[in-house]
Design a binder for these strands. Sequence first.
DNA 1: CTCCTTGGAGAGTGCCGCTCACCAACACGG
DNA 2: CCGTGTTGGTGAGCGGCACTCTCCAAGGAG
Lengths: 214, 214
Amino acid sequence: MRLADLSKRSGVSTATIKYYLREGLLPPGRQVNATTAEYDEGHLRRLRLVRALIQVGKVPVATAREVLGHVDDESLGRTIRLGAALWALPQDAEPDEADPAVAAARTEVGRLLELLGWETAREMAPLSPVHRSLVVAVAALRRLDYPWDAELMAPYGALMMEVARRELDFMETHASDAEQVEMAVASAVLFQPVLRALHRLAQEEESARRYGIE
Amino acid sequence: MRLADLSKRSGVSTATIKYYLREGLLPPGRQVNATTAEYDEGHLRRLRLVRALIQVGKVPVATAREVLGHVDDESLGRTIRLGAALWALPQDAEPDEADPAVAAARTEVGRLLELLGWETAREMAPLSPVHRSLVVAVAALRRLDYPWDAELMAPYGALMMEVARRELDFMETHASDAEQVEMAVASAVLFQPVLRALHRLAQEEESARRYGIE
DNA sequence: CTCCTTGGAGAGTGCCGCTCACCAACACGG
DNA sequence: CCGTGTTGGTGAGCGGCACTCTCCAAGGAG
């Protein structure tokens, strides 16, 4: 398969594919000679993943490169690889440590993890970027005077744990570590729009049920 | 309160506040004379909401303006107002109707709503932008060969309904329609990062529990 | 009276995800 | 073996967006 074929089968323009190659999102093809390179099904698969991350998941190109780098790092075990890939994903702003809402949010998130019994998450908390973006989001809610507290949030955490369990069950039906990590990244990113849409549909549905369509 | 005070109390630069005023995200202050305008607590509250939408929720400025327009539209009843605001929120790309994955996704989403018994959502389906972005996201998952089907997704839908019920219960503790709609919008947008973070933390936690830290 | 601040508005900035234009080296059909 | 078209590679350009800068004349504060 050459570049033009890759483009046809993926629906991505050759210019964009070249850009992804340049940015290191897509590994180079097998160079046949100075003007020809061969791509295989693996490239097509990776290209579709890249597109999904960027277009549906809105992941910045630089972040996608980093995440995919971890996915491909065969020197790591599965858990570390998964962790590294997930850690590379968030691109939220740094919390403003001077803001009292941030400090309060941090405390409350700590209590939440305790309530949920998420020991690994608690140990990793000071370093984890995921933890950090949780703090930022909670701080934003608090600034809007939403009485957010750990007890209120614990059920959501439990629900997300339920979601994660289903995903890992499903991942286990797949063969290689790389495939599993790839799948975990795809779920982390692509289930987001799905959950968001279901969430909003549920809001509308429940609102219509409670109050009718006035 | 003048512009500079509004800036100090919100932590948003005067230049940015002026920009929001120009873009219609913030209603103008009470004009005292040609060079002075007075802002009140309502402006501060709105400004915080705008910031949360844009910075944490990553909602584009143009979209935020539209959403807030619906929140403020007192000619509408609560359900319609909520629906209008939520409909204005998504900013996903249009589905490519020529793509067979999109057609398959549409069918599958229809079956999902049937399984969940979400009648209002089914009636609104052809028009709803939220429904549309669900189709886009599901199509992306299908293209990656994830065997997504309605039965697999139904539990997620049920979980999101549970989340929505909690939110509406909480909303009911608040007074005016406008406040309730504002709160619904804030949840729709700000719970997203919270859920995302909890989801990823749960993934890491469960992975560590199952496989240890190799 | 003097200096500072105000609201308003246009133009500029920086980033980002492409997209275009151009290149010499080659592939391939006839 | 020739002519046309395609290849990988690269620099520059584009359009959108969220600000941010700069300037202005009109007031306000001490």
